[in-house]
Nucleic acid binder design. Structure first.
Lengths: 361, 361
DNA sequence: CTGAAAGCGCTTACAG
DNA sequence: CTGAAAGCGCTTACAG
């Protein structure tokens, strides 16, 4: 055991003198040309069995591994994907990254990760850095601040594939692959479930107006009311959740107000789990029972939502799948890149209603 | 506006034909040599003001940006850090990544992210891939499966800096930089707080035995009892939390048992927040009040811990700071790499007790 | 003040 | 079957 370990150390010590082993090293030791080594290593038909064996054997013994940087330069392809997201520390986004990593890894690609921190400026800098690193493509979700899209338009015009996920805008002047979640449909699932379990006065804690998802979820809410012959009451739709990070407090405060209405709601559909959790707190404090008196549904299925009490019925967004799909679209695009007529697609992922204990059976 | 946009498009269309602009392109257009362009761009003192101006002006106009891959090959330095973590989708780890990104970004480094998914095999493959990509260093937290450390020993012997964080082992045969959290001290803070608020029969939901952190937290628990003249009762230390992902269920079940003891505990110190949340559920179900009858303290400060009811008193681990420190240690090391005598350090980060409503005032 | 040459590690058309 | 040459985009010691 000790002997083996010593041998191991010596082996690597010999590497250190000359850095990593290169094709040249192998060529020198075998007294053949680097070209031949290169060909032998990739099992080129021209090379003799004998040479191949010798090369492969020595390469293994020296623990040779091709220098990916040299390959990248040679092939103008880095096998690397640049990922820009607003915040890593957010369950949904980290799940997406996980999905991206999954597909990228299996295709032999690395991902370079940048977080914009919701800053437009950092997003632009990140874009530039990634471009300098010659990533083969971009997977991005905008920062909240981003209003100008020139940095992405630029990427697109350079012919570098880019796919947007989650946060998208309808018109940024270019047509690219996109992956989003079906917010409208998700909202409908949630509200229909409330209707089905007997709720009639359904309030909505709406999200920030500028976000597309807020609009879609609100629309889904409204349409379900219509479809079920329930009249829409503007008073039951409240929104004051503007600042990031105060969704819980916002949900709590808004719900307090809703419960103080002469004719209080018997259900609350929150645009987001954290707001729903704030609502739950407010309802409990009012001495009302959940779900008997007031039902609550959230959106997003945060990790915590199954642990609060009562556990939260919510609309799950397939984050992992979103990451996977975005990455698949990227590969699809580079595969067809020569074809002039590549048409970008917008993939809309289905959401799923997770029924727990904050709504009636 | 429209005009400007057209111009913009044309500009980039011209790029597309020839790919990215290179130093050669600039040289050709200015009828000078690439060497001179290279020097002018980096403000080399030899180059005349006039030439410099012309070069810089054209470079700006053509939107030239150096090819980082070419630079990497030339300098044998990629300005890239390889990060290997068990799971991105874990609040603590994503916080760490965020801290890493913060420092790396400000130093002009990119991070290539790999997640081992708690798989030894993937960890080994990731290590190899990162090595092939010639990252300048490694920041890693072991997978739970990892018992053999040859892949890291190998990296170390190649002279590539590596710093371990969070999950470490005492003896893996090499001496490297490390960053951990003071689990022992954190546990002491937690348990001392319980004692200070009048608890005497303090139970401990212990973590998986093989983990160093389980041992340290248990030791802190035990020592505080000693220091306060409270006798240690083996019956009050329970552990069955072996399988990943069932910490909540484990905490719940174990607490049920504890509460059924003839002389039930008046406090529970859980090795981890999720287990503590399971404990809270069990206590509430037993009709006991928190914290009046039973106090609960967790460890880690998960995002959800402030939202459950009652909100959880817990020991916060500085994840962001851990990422920052690990990255700083890496930079410190490469800066001193020429110096033979570099001595690796183990940085131990202080934890902080966050007092909420699951413990008495 | 500027350029030609060599080289980082690899591949591949071309020649033999 | 094998090798010399050119080149990916850049830098830098050497020469002028």
């Amino acid at each position: 055991m000790v002997l083996i370990k010593c041998e191991y150390h010596q082996l690597h010590l010999s590497f250190m003198k000359s850095g990593e082993v290169t094709i040249k090293d192998i060529a020198r030791q075998l007294a053949i040309s680097p070209s031949t080594v290169s060909r032998a290593l990739k099992d080129h038909p021209d090379i003799s069995r004998k040479t191949k064996n010798a090369v492969v054997e020595l390469a293994t013994r020296l623990d040779y591994h091709p220098n990916a940087i040299a390959l990248s330069l040679r092939k103008s392809q880095t096998n690397t994907i640049g990922v820009i997201i607003p915040e890593i520390v957010h369950f949904f986004f980290s799940t997406i990254i996980s999905g991206i990593e999954d597909i990228a890894y299996n295709a032999g690609y690395n991902i370079i990760l940048c977080q914009s921190n919701e800053s437009y400026e950092k997003e632009v800098t990140d874009t530039r850095a990634l471009l300098n690193s010659r990533v083969d493509g971009f997977l991005v979700s905008f920062s909240r601040e981003t209003k100008n899209f020139d940095h992405f338009v630029d990427i697109h015009h350079r012919g570098v594939p880019i796919v947007f996920f989650d946060r998208i805008y309808e018109d940024i002047g270019i047509s690219t692959n996109r992956v989003i979640v079906d917010d409208y449909d998700g909202a409908k699932l949630a509200v229909q479930h409330l209707v089905d379990t007997g709720c009639r006065r359904i309030a909505h804690l709406a999200g920030p107006e500028m976000l597309q998802l807020s609009k879609s979820r609100f629309q889904g809410y409204k349409d379900v009311l219509d479809e079920n012959g329930i009249s829409f009451e503007p008073d039951l739709v409240v929104s004051d959740i503007k600042v990031k990070g105060v969704e819980f407090e916002g949900g709590y405060a808004l719900t307090k107000k809703l419960l103080a209405l002469p004719d209080r709601p018997d259900a609350i559909f929150a645009f987001q789990d954290l707001a729903a959790i704030g609502a739950i707190k407010a309802i409990k404090e009012s001495g009302l029972r959940i779900p008997e008196d007031v039902s609550v549904v959230g959106f997003s299925n945060w990790q915590m939502s199954s642990y609060i009490e009562p556990s939260l019925t919510t609309v799950a967004q397939p984050g992992f799948q979103m990451g996977q799909e975005a990455t698949r679209l990227f590969f699809q695009q580079i595969r067809q890149d020569d074809i002039e007529s590549y048409t970008p697609v917008t993939k809309i992922l289905k959401t799923e209603l997770i029924i727990r204990n904050s709504t009636r059976k």
